[in-house]
Simulated scan of single mutants.
Amino acid sequence: MSYSIIGFGNIGQAIAKAFARNGIEVSVATTRDPESFASDAAAIGPTIIPKKLAEAVKADIIFLAVRFESHQDVAKTLPIWQGKTIVDVTNAYGVPPEELEGQPSSRFIAQAFFGARLVKGFNHLIAATLDQDPAVKGGRRVVFLASDDDAAAAEIGALAKNLGFAPIELGGLSEGGLLVQARGNSWGRLIFKDLVKFD
């Protein structure tokens, strides 16, 4: 299984650190040349591999950690996304609901990534919190996942566990997804909730 993170701002780097802590290789890319962020990737660890966008999208599982309005630029990189799982880490705060055609933001994004399985996840925490080791006082930091594809949600849940988090599945994008999305001037009810699960 291969992994990539598209977007290497604060959130993208926080996710990269989770991979690095666990010695899991992940490609990172932006629309810029990889040399421009190679030193930032190297500072995180040797398993963080800077690549061109066209190379990074070849991964099986792709974390979409760009600004919401940039998702269509990424989607144009491939004509079809069949066989790939997209983890939507974006937030559409400030985007009017009518621009989303009244849909949950993740379902709107899923239309751009034709053929991919989409999981909403890793977006409800601020970067400074996501950046921290998810092992907290004997428990594990929670990440919420929502998807219309149960198998994809389970796959990303297993990855989240490997990264040290405690995944909680919320159901489909039109139900659970609304709890962890932002759109217009509102935040979903679980956004910014920093929870720890104790087994």
Rank of each mutant, 00 (worst) to 15 (best):
residue 77 T to N: 06
residue 84 K to S: 05
residue 108 F to A: 10
residue 85 T to P: 05
residue 83 G to N: 07
residue 159 L to A: 11
residue 109 I to H: 00
residue 140 R to P: 08
residue 80 I to V: 11
residue 82 Q to H: 12
residue 122 F to Y: 15
residue 148 D to M: 07
residue 146 A to P: 07
residue 140 R to G: 09
residue 104 P to F: 00
residue 157 G to P: 09
residue 72 Q to L: 11
residue 189 R to C: 10
residue 71 H to M: 11
residue 144 F to V: 12
residue 149 D to N: 14
residue 79 P to V: 07
residue 120 K to E: 09
residue 150 D to V: 14
residue 117 R to E: 15
residue 145 L to H: 03
residue 138 G to I: 11
residue 123 N to I: 08
residue 123 N to E: 04
residue 96 P to F: 02
residue 168 I to F: 04
residue 173 L to P: 03
residue 192 F to W: 10
residue 156 I to K: 02
residue 116 A to R: 04
residue 169 E to G: 13
residue 94 G to Q: 06
residue 118 L to W: 01
residue 154 A to L: 12
residue 142 V to E: 05
residue 144 F to I: 13
residue 112 A to D: 14
residue 173 L to V: 09
residue 71 H to I: 04
residue 166 A to Y: 00
residue 141 R to H: 03
residue 74 V to A: 12
residue 111 Q to I: 05
residue 85 T to C: 12
residue 133 D to G: 04
residue 71 H to G: 05
residue 111 Q to Y: 04
residue 185 N to F: 07
residue 176 G to R: 01
residue 78 L to S: 06
residue 182 A to Y: 02
residue 178 L to H: 05
residue 79 P to L: 04
residue 148 D to T: 11
residue 106 S to Q: 06
residue 151 A to E: 15
residue 162 N to M: 05
residue 81 W to S: 10
residue 102 G to W: 02
residue 91 N to H: 02
residue 183 R to S: 15
residue 172 G to V: 11
residue 171 G to R: 00
residue 158 A to S: 15
